[in-house]
Nucleic acid binder design. Structure first.
Lengths: 196, 196, 196, 196
DNA sequence: CATGAATGAGTTTTCATTCAT
DNA sequence: CATGAATGAAAACTCATTCAT
């Protein structure tokens, strides 16, 4: 692994994540990030070309984590429904337990950053994106097995994950309570949306 | 002449909507809004106390429109499923046909503006918010009729509208195609998520 | 009197005086003056070339009033000391009774406006300035009678009126009390500064 | 290096003093101060929270200097009259030699800044203000010795310093000449105003 | 490598002044 | 004459980025 672990870089990423989650991109000057990270302002620019690059790095890192989460829990031997239920629960749980990462992701996705990023991922020559590939396969497998409705994968994705994001949001902002049973029922509903 | 229709104010609102949809709140200086609207920069401040107030006004206007849309289509004599299907389709169609408004709304909702606004609406003494009340009643009616799963209204809301927003987004950004049949199938899926 | 009395002009002058006394030159937009005067903003420019001209007019008006005050009370048959005492008391009393005019005058005198104005008056071809002439005569008469110290009139002026302005200020801002007896004693002191 | 002497901060203060003396607070944009100081506009805000804070700092600095001046010359063993004469002369001389500081002070004192400042000093819990305390003591001592008229200290202050400021002003604006002998005679007159 | 003082382009906002009605 | 909507130049202030140390 040539990306030698660097304490300062990690500190910058962690500070940025926390601060942006709370104050937003434009409410978080680089000086604030540097201060919280305990480094000089200039130091940020040794590790990232620009503030934008830092934000993209943050997103990439987060995406990597979530993909890992998916891959870790993905057991191809489980029945499809079980795999979906597990996936949904794991992701919802992850966001509830990591509200800063959720708040960051949300802000990223719906900002010009996220649009550009998403566009790149879909229309760019997406060489390897094995996290999404898993999801894609999962949906396709479900369609082939006639367990999931035959619809474009992107729509199935929205049907299954749209509510999860929305519920996570309400939970994190304190608008709803959410015990284990209710999480299960919620993911069940998501499944009902895509199943045949 | 009630509400003294004001050409310049309308032009400012329209320009702001369009530009913010594309460039985001912070990528849209007031000078840019003024220029596109064909007015002087100072003119904005004759109609809005500040840039923030302009943004809130934009949101309020949009909310009003959407509520009207809901109320117009809401026929209490239709069966529940029909009402939901209609509602989902109307909203999805509206966003597809008004992509700037959708892009604006999305950015608003996930920004500090939107969070404050939502919090106010939920925890504030929400005097009369008859657009949401309709939705709330709709869900409660469904639960009472044992047609909809017995879950907190906020979660049902997420289950039904989460995917709609997500699909609208993909459509507007050009990531998916969406003909009338697919819209119907998508809303059906949303219904499946909440139905018993 | 060709300067035909004009209600609106008077209203503008009165409003400006009051507002500037309280908020200062730069804390008083023309729109505020117009509103208080009950006229349109544009109307100000029918009577005054610019905001600066309005301010100069205000000062001129005030100076005229004070000169009148002096001339009214000036009885050449009184002994010099009596004339001075009366003058001092009348002026101090005027400022105490008209705090807005005092606050305006003070701000004017010590601002770039006042400097320019004063310079003009001293070095310009001061055709007729009979208010100051009276004062000048008064001091010269005192010197001639060997009742007043032989010093440049400007210095005598400072010695006599400097304390009066300073005391008026403290009184108006509420820093000191000032009954009739104390006023008399104060003016006596001013006299002591200039008398032989 | 105590107080870490900072070249740029000094340059900003000096430029601000000079420019405000000439053009007034509102005639001196921060950009002008920065340019004259040979720094970027942003640099001002590294050293001062706001333009207002810069102005307060300027005043504080000046007050400190003047207090030092007073304390340096104050010899409690001199007869009272001598002490007063010396004080008056020193202060008048200082203003004549530092016209920018005088012009600044004058504008400050008669502006909302100065009023607030003065009010604070009089009514606030003035912990230690040993410059003014010296003056206060001086007047009280004079009263006790029956050398100075028994009047409120604030009024005595006006009687003694009012003319000094007024004369300094006339001198600085070039309205009068003022040689050493005339300075002495002027301060004598100030003394005559307060002496018994 | 790391720093943080310095920068100045860019942002929001104000307000004296104009001019079509 | 009177108006007040419209203007845009100018102001205070911020902050991503650089670079000398």
């Amino acid at each position: 692994m040539q990306e030698s672990y660097c304490e300062k870089k990690e500190a910058i990423l962690a500070s940025a994540m926390e601060l942006i989650a709370e104050h937003g991109f434009h409410g978080t000057p680089t000086s604030m990030i540097a201060e919280k990270a305990g480094v000089g302002t200039g130091t940020i620019y040794r590790y990232f070309e620009s503030k934008d690059e830092l934000i993209y790095a943050l997103h990439k890192e987060l995406e990597r984590k979530i993909k890992k989460l998916i891959l870790d829990r993905y057991n191809p031997n489980d029945p499809l429904r079980v795999r979906f239920m597990l996936l949904g629960k794991v992701i919802l749980r992850y966001f509830i337990d990591n509200p800063n990462e959720f708040r960051f992701l949300e802000q990223f996705v719906y900002s010009p950053y996220g649009i550009a990023c998403r566009r790149e991922k879909i229309f760019g020559n997406n060489n390897q994106d094995n996290g999404n590939d898993i999801l894609k396969e999962l949906f396709n497998e479900g369609i082939a097995q006639q367990v999931i409705r035959e619809m474009p994968v992107a729509i199935l994705h929205s049907l299954f994950f749209g509510p999860i994001m929305s519920v996570a949001r309400d939970r994190i902002l304190g608008f709803i309570e959410l015990d284990e049973a209710m999480i299960t029922r919620t993911i069940e509903s998501c499944w009902n949306a895509v199943k045949l």
